[in-house]
């Protein structure tokens, strides 16, 4: 059993100091509840609609707040979001996994959302791979918000045999038609989380933020789904909160024994078909 906490926080826009303090408080609370992993939303250290602030809040590996998160991770694993400035100057929307006093892995968001109210591809460079991160708590596949809306990331994490998908997001609440008990956007999210859990036979840990940026209200709805597709825990409402849950490695094993999806998966077939598709396009 892995005890986790989802920190559904309300980051301040572009205020690293305040947000770091928020992380410190959440980590302390998680530690006090004997949690082994605390998960934060996308861009939890910076706020979301950064635009030109991206250049001002981007952090290089080991810089200030990241060093502090590493320090805090000596006895608890921390997954937190930030704007990552790479050596070559590119800035990524990144979720880092901090453990035992260092950053043990990071995922750079691949599918930057650039439509409607979103403009991420203007402000960030896209990540170029989905790689599972090995932690002392298990193997994690990180997907950042829009990454969950594409099949590729979850499929690759499934092939890698992750124990849990850490899905952090900064998703605004949209759609409140009659008959929708929760915002339409959140309803679609739960469908995706359930499907991802069932299809990858892993836990899906969805941590969304709350709060408001220039009139856009983030939807919260942080949630954990088991590898059997059943909901384990969720937060309702639009307020900040903490969600505690236990991830059961035995359940993952049993689900995969009962329905051996990974055994029957045919990645080589996909590879051949993709190559054929590419050849056809080039011809």
């Amino acid at each position: 059993m892995t005890r986790i906490v989802l920190a559904q926080i309300e980051p301040a826009l572009g205020d690293l100091r305040r947000n770091l303090a928020l992380h410190e408080a959440e980590v302390a609370a998680a530690r006090a509840s004997d949690a082994q992993l605390v998960v934060f939303p996308e861009l939890s250290l910076t706020g979301y609609f950064l635009k030109d602030l991206v250049a001002e809040v981007a952090l290089a590996t080991g810089e200030g707040p990241l060093a502090r998160l590493a320090e805090l991770s000596r006895d608890i694993t921390i997954a937190a979001g930030f704007a990552e400035r790479a050596r070559d100057g590119r800035v990524y929307n990144t979720l880092g996994l901090f453990e035992d006093g260092r950053m043990v892995g990071a995922h750079r968001k691949v599918h930057l959302v650039t439509y409607g109210m979103f403009d991420e591809a203007r402000d960030f460079a896209p990540g170029e791979r989905f790689r599972a991160i090995d932690s002392k708590l298990g193997r994690f596949g990180v997907l950042l918000c829009e990454d969950m809306w594409h099949l590729d990331g979850m499929w690759l994490h499934f092939l890698a045999g992750v124990d849990a998908i850490l899905a952090s997001s900064a998703s605004p609440a949209r759609g409140a038609a009659a008959g929708e008990p929760i915002p339409r956007s959140q309803r679609v999210w739960t469908t995706i989380q359930d499907a991802a859990a069932v299809l990858t036979q892993s836990h899906v840990v969805y941590c969304n933020r709350v709060g408001c940026e220039d009139g856009i209200v983030f939807g919260g709805g942080s949630r954990v789904v088991g590898p059997d597709g059943l909901e384990l825990a969720r937060l309702d409402g639009l307020e900040a909160g903490r969600l505690s849950c236990e991830l059961d490695a035995s359940l993952v094993r049993r689900v995969r024994t009962i329905t051996p999806l990974r055994r029957d998966e045919k990645p080589q077939l996909v590879l051949r078909d993709l190559r054929a598709l590419e050849d056809a396009e080039e011809a």
Binding site: A173, A178, G215
Partner: peptide
């Protein structure tokens, strides 16, 4: 037609936050 409970919650949240 809207889910008016939800709309009220969102708009109250908006007003307080902003």
């Amino acid at each position: 037609d809207l889910n008016t409970d939800l709309v009220e919650a969102l708009l109250v949240r908006f007003l307080r936050a902003e």
